[in-house]
Design a protein around this nucleic acid. Sequence first.
DNA 1: TATAATATGATTAGCACC
DNA 2: GGTGCTAATCATATTATA
Length: 496
Amino acid sequence: ELESSPKKQQCAISSQWSSDYDESFLDDLSDTDSWFDDEENTSSLSDKEKTLLTLANMGYTVEEASLAMDRCGSCSEASLDELTDCICAAQMAKAADAYLPDDKPAKRLYNEYDKLKKRKSSVYESLSRKNQRGYEKKILNENEMIRIPKPMIGFGVPCLTESCQVTDRNLPEGATGPPYFYYENVALTPKGVWDSISRFLYDIEPEFVDSKYFCAAARKRGYIHNLPIHNRFPLLPLPPLTIHAAFPLTRNWWPTWDTRTKLNCLQTVIGSAKMTHRIRKALENWDREPPLHVQKYVRDECRKWNLVWVGRNKLAPLECDEVEMLLGFPRNHTRGGGISRTDRYKSLGNSFQVDTVAYHLSVLKYLYPGGINLLSLFSGIGGAEVALHRLGITLKNVLSVEISEVNRNIFRSWWEQTNQKGNLIEVPDVQQVDDNFLGQVMDSVGGFDLVVGGSPCNNLAGSNRVSRDGLDGKQSALFYDYYRILDSVRRMSRQE
DNA sequence: TATAATATGATTAGCACC
DNA sequence: GGTGCTAATCATATTATA
């Protein structure tokens, strides 16, 4: 976009602002708010330098700021919004650079893990020489721990790595499909959880992806699947990738010292009105920029509760339909039919990001041009089904398991509204899906092509202050039912 | 009685620094 | 390798309101 922009103009940065300039100097200056507000001190600077100072004051490095100004043209023409969006794009591109297309997939995914292993190997050797077996075992276990890669882009994402996708990977023996399966859960679990999940799901390495590369909100998730990974394609049109692109009206009220370009994870509850009121009162004490400690207070609350600017000193949580849009669902997907606002937030917060999942499932379009039979566990509001539908993959038969009546109503409503021609079987509880029942359904429909599900994250998610008990917690232990049912489907498929 | 609103930290990981 | 900081996070329990 920026390169095709008509007002592209070179804007030479004077040498004193070159990239090797010590940015701590600027930090020191910006820490004194009186200096920044003092017109006399800044009046001697050029517009370019003022803009550069403003961007530095917003927390960007001088390098990022000057590069953005080079790309966007002269400072008077390019707004701060354009410059910060440009910096966001540059940060995304930097993430892509860390993605090394020449390496083997496993190495690329776990390059950070390799570094750790190298660091620890020397320790391991010295302990070995001392013949301390207990320590050996402990360190080996630590080395086996699954680490989350940075950047969190899995085998690639459309907006960054289109030209250098991974074309293949080596699945463990016996893990290949069909039937294909797709499992999802939160990436940031207590230690060891993903190791356990991976061990059950046939030792397949998780693909960790942050949905901030698919939409304007972060969503750090791990996916374990045995799908092919070549010739993936995204849903079109690509959703807006920045807050300002997704919510243009917020530009009018967005202060320069709030440097967010992406929202954080969309959760199951929103911030309270009292909290946004407290922020408003705190901001109204200042005519221009609030002092730094107030800025920090407001920024922290904004990040914690995903607030957006809707007026002067006015912050607000996202509306339900805005969350629907960010997650890739059709507008009003969760609206109506006797569903309360609170329940909408809860159902949406527990759901897939549709564009992300669709990208992974897109390879099925070539494999099953006539459509698929789907076993959908913990279906929720039907994120996987919406993704498949938007990909143009026909849903022939769907066995959907979902405990929440509210969610079942939302999903059935979508199924009817979209005039699905396939056959939908709804079951409220995974316990009802035993081998006997599975056998009957599979005989009737001719087996499943895809088993998809994200098991409950209640006891894994960081937001849970009360019962973050790990994979064996009350709700999250239902993962073992996902495994049980998946394994039954695989066994029965092979018998046929 | 049902729904809505509100208050409630800890566990990770990464980083700079020593 | 220790320490102190920043940062993010598919939620639950209790209280208020309709």
